[in-house]
Structures are given as structure tokens and as C-alpha cells.
Design a binder for these strands. Structure first.
Lengths: 221, 221
DNA sequence: ATAAAAATTTAGACAAATCTAAAAATTTAT
DNA sequence: ATAAATTTTTAGATTTGTCTAAATTTTTAT
């Protein structure tokens, strides 16, 4: 039993929205907004996904993924994130260009393709946005990282990702030379506005506002 | 104006079939067979493609591509062949595994993706089957190669492709170590059955039947 | 040249995914 | 607690690509 492009997208969106709600029921309207469609279309689709045992759906009561639905959603997410790594690291896409293309590539389902790609990329555990990549069986790597505002002066770490995915933010990072995997040392903290100074790759010093630094995810050395 | 996955497939198939006929009209039945659908469905689709000015279509008289249709077909073929190179060279797919996955990847239309991929692969001019890869504007590279039966004893060349794409044939080649780009020197020819002996990569000697050697495309050194 | 065979097209249906408009259920605010 | 507002679902259409069965056109064989 295969799933259409569209079904996969619904499952993926339900996964993400439900996660934001700590596993709670996702509303029809929020789904419609994310899927760029109308609530009526969502209702129809939920009925169908429910028949296929991919979601738990009670009329008017929102929706969650079944075990099976979650497995499929995680496969799509795995593919999406692996392709993002590929586009960024191998094809030199910029952070802000990556997402839309990955939205298409994620629906190519060949198991062989996905596993070979994973190998080719060196089994990455995080995508360019710092989001964890689930493994074949849907398990996430253990994530223990901090945002930059949590570091103390002198502490050092590696930039593992970002928690804000706004294109202009990503462009800004690229411009100042903050790339995934670069090393960061915290030079100083300005108490009055919580802005900070960092050293990137042991080379360049930079000031960052609190707004920026709180969206940078760091793995401590 | 974008074209659906399905439309792209029809255009691609019409291109290939028409080429076999030296540019002649393609019949509804042959299209149906290649597209694994029914003649009635083909008729419907041809009407639609004709309205979109992608094909020249006269009822009962077969179909050819318009200039516009050909441009689109060549884009799909370009993408297909570039992905085949990627799968073979980067992900270590075997020759016989490549095609089906490329059939899916070929419909992802991001121009940026295609051009970055081309660059990443080093601007290959031929795919793993030896078929030429059209450039961005739809032009084919000049092809001047020979099949292995045309060489004289002592002549050497590079394996550029194959003219037979049967999976068992491709598997056989992989098994004896004949890969795209390997060097071949013609050792001797057996007059009675035209079988030959070659040296692969200046290392290993191998016998090949006439059947096999006539399907190997060689670029002379 | 014409009848039989083959190829192609039309007619009418169907499934997937969507939409608008109207109805029904739920939530919110007084 | 109940009326108003909001959310969700149903009803009925639409589009895309497909199908079967019947009708039509073209080709082939005598």
C-alpha cells in the first residue's frame, strides 16, 4: 500500500503541528493553513487517512497520527532532511534556497536511494537547520545542545543548527560567515542588552544581538 | 505554464519513439504500450497536449512534438540522464538499478537544482548508458564513437556507453568489471565467431562474444 | 474494390484531490 | 444559559488522468 504525494504531506504536517502541541490534537483549520488548502478539503482528506488507519480522527475533535502514520511521517522527514544536507553541502545551495527543493525530493520513496544518500553524506545526524535526522527506524539522535545565550564567557562549541528558519535570518548568517559546523567561542556579554561578541573559527570576531544568539544552537566542546 | 508529471512523461516517450522513426509520427498504440496505459487514455491526452501546443496531432494520423514540446522533452531527458550519472557515480548504484529511480527524479524541475547537479558531476556529456546529455538549451554533444567490433587489434579506447540496456546484460558487464569510463585494449579477434579478447584497465584480460562487443560503445584514444 | 482486421476515437464512468456555499457542531462571551 | 461567533463538516461541482465498451476510421487481404 503506497501513499500519494499529498497524503505524505498531510502526515508530515500533522506530525509537525502535533509536536508543537506536545502531541495534542491538530485542528482542521491549522492543517488547512499549513497545507495551503481549505478546511473542507482537509475534512475530506482526514476521513480518507482515517480509513487507512494513518490517523486517529474524531469529527470536530482534531486529529493525531497513529503509529503507522507516524512511521510514514518520519520517513518523509528523514528524506527531507537528508536532501537538505545534500543540497547545502554537495550542491552549495544557500540555507534559504534549500527548503523548497527538498519539499519535492522528499517524496521520492526508493529505500535504496535514501540509504545510499545517507551513506554518501556520511550519516549526518542533523540537517542544515540543526534539526535532527531520524534513522531508518524512525529514531532521533540524542540531542543535547544549547542556544548561544546559555554559554559562559570563554566557553566554546560548534554551531549545530538554528531554531529560527526565516529566510532573511538565514541569509544574514551566511553573510557574516556563520555556517553549520563552524566553531564559536564566547568572548563577552554586554549586560545591558544581552548582545554578545563571539569568535568564529578562531579567526573573526563578531557582535550578535540577543535576538540572533538565542536562535543559534550550540553543541559544547 | 507548468506541465504535470504525466504530461512530461508523454512528451518524453513521444520524443524517444519519434526518434526511432527518424522523426516520423508516433502511433497511439505504441504510446499506450510505452506509457503502460490504454489507447483511449492516450487519445484523451493527445488532445490536451495538442491544445497546449506541445504536439502536432491529427486524429488517426499519429503525433509528433512541436518545437515547444521538444524543448520540454529534452529538459526531462537532460534531468533523467544527469540523475543517472549521479546515482551511478556518487551513490554507487549498479547500472541496472539506476533507471527506475531516475524516472522519478527527472520530474523535479528546479532549474537551479539541475544546473548545480550538472556542475557537481563535472558537466558529464554522456550518461551511464552512453546516451548523450543535452545541454541547458537542448543541444546534444557531438558523438563520435564506435562499437567494439570496429576496433583493430591493438587499438585502445574508453568505454563510453552501451547500446543494449537489458538489465541482465548490464549486470553481466558489472560482474566482469566493465564500468563506464574504463579503458579497453583489443588483444585479439577470433575469426570463426568474431569473439574477442580485451584488456580492461591495463589489468585484466577478458573474452567477449560478438553479441556483447557490438553493444559496447568506445571512444578511441 | 470491398470485406475483414486492426487501430483509433468517442461516450460515459470513476477515483483523487480540490473548491464554494450551506449546514451543523463547538466554543465564547455576555 | 443561551445567543453570537467560530470552527468544522457535508453537499454538490470541478479538474486530471484513467478506464471499458461501443463506434468510427484506416489498413490489409483477397
Amino acid at each position: 500500500m503506497t501513499n500519494s504525494f499529498t497524503e505524505e504531506n498531510y502526515l508530515k504536517i500533522i506530525y509537525h503541528l502535533s509536536k508543537e502541541l506536545d502531541g495534542g490534537e491538530v485542528s482542521t483549520n491549522s492543517l488547512a493553513e499549513m497545507a495551503k488548502t481549505k478546511a473542507a478539503s482537509v475534512s475530506d482528506m482526514l476521513k480518507k487517512l482515517s480509513e487507512k488507519k494513518l490517523v486517529n480522527y474524531q469529527k470536530y475533535q482534531g486529529v493525531t497520527l497513529t503509529k503507522l502514520g507516524q512511521t510514514i511521517a518520519l520517513k518523509v522527514i528523514r528524506r527531507h532532511r537528508l536532501w537538505e544536507v545534500f543540497l547545502l553541502e554537495k550542491l552549495n545551495f544557500t540555507w534559504d534556497e534549500v527548503h523548497n527543493v527538498a519539499e519535492e525530493l522528499e517524496h521520492i520513496s526508493s529505500e535504496k536511494l535514501v540509504e545510499k544518500l545517507d551513506e554518501f553524506l556520511g550519516f549526518p545526524r542533523f540537517d542544515p537547520h540543526g534539526d535532527p535526522i531520524p534513522d531508518q527506524s524512525g529514531k532521533f539522535p540524542s540531542t543535547i545542545y544549547h542556544n548561544l545565550t546559555e554559554l559562559k564567557i570563554g566557553q566554546a562549541g560548534i554551531l549545530m543548527g538554528v531554531s529560527e528558519h526565516n529566510p532573511s535570518f538565514l541569509k544574514f548568517l551566511a553573510k557574516i560567515g556563520l555556517t553549520l559546523g563552524c566553531s564559536i567561542v564566547l568572548n563577552e556579554i554586554n549586560e545591558f542588552d544581552h548582545s554578545i561578541s563571539i569568535k568564529i573559527n578562531n579567526e573573526i570576531d563578531h557582535f550578535l544581538s540577543y535576538e540572533v544568539s538565542k536562535n543559534l544552537l550550540i553543541k559544547l566542546n
